[in-house]
Design a protein around this nucleic acid. Sequence first.
DNA 1: AGCATTGTTTCACA
DNA 2: TTGTGAAACAATGC
Length: 266
Amino acid sequence: MPELPEVESARLVLERHALGRPIADVDDADTWVCRPHRPGEIRAALVGRQLTTAERRGKSMWCETSGPGPVLGIHLGMSGKVVFADADGRETDGGDYWQRGRAQGDHRFTRFALRFSDGTRLLLVDPRRLGRVRLDPPVERLGPDAGEITPAQFRVIMARGTAPVKVRLLDQEAVAGVGNLLADEALWRAKINPARPVDELSRAEVDRLHRGLRAAVAQAVGGGGVHTLSVVPARRPGLACPRCGAPMLRGKVGGRTTWWCSREQA
DNA sequence: AGCATTGTTTCACA
DNA sequence: TTGTGAAACAATGC
């Protein structure tokens, strides 16, 4: 299930395979995934055009279209996956990070599809329908990408309000791309308790958290996904902190299950 | 059976 | 304005 690193893998699939092919047909019949559009609206806007770019900020992806036409926004939600199928039906995707059991050609959960004039197809496969496809997505509301945010930008984000620091990390309008696992990893690296209010963090702690976040993103993107992070395997009952050996604790912060080290993140 | 899940949006309410 | 919590989307794995 995607966080920033998995979405970057999906973006690469778009960039390598889906650009420059004339769109012959669009399946936009899923009114939930394609909300607020009416069935046929996305189809009418895209048929005859080509995708010309594949961009990403945080967990949001979008493609510009020829003409110029509208921007096609794709969000994978928690259960979505981008699949490219060649003219013979052979499929490639952004990595085996989930749905390991999905067989090629299993279209039970295909919620959106582009068919190109050369017979290839681009699919959004999404069992839980938590993903979303829309025209002209409001990506300008997103904060800076978590892999690129500067120390100065990060200090501004942490200087407002009183929310728990983990809640602020998960706020996509503050910093884009941090999900539940990346947030726990960044806080663990910085040795900061996830429930600490942002207004109680020292400047040194904010800067440490910025470095922890950038390092966590780099590790996960380079390793191929959030499963390659350090503290993720320790998110199980009874396991010890992989750095100091103290017991890991579990709780809820911002409504999300949260794990932290009982000693280093007290 | 029951509970949890790596995301987002919307709404009610303090 | 800021923050909190729940609901909805719906499948899967423990």
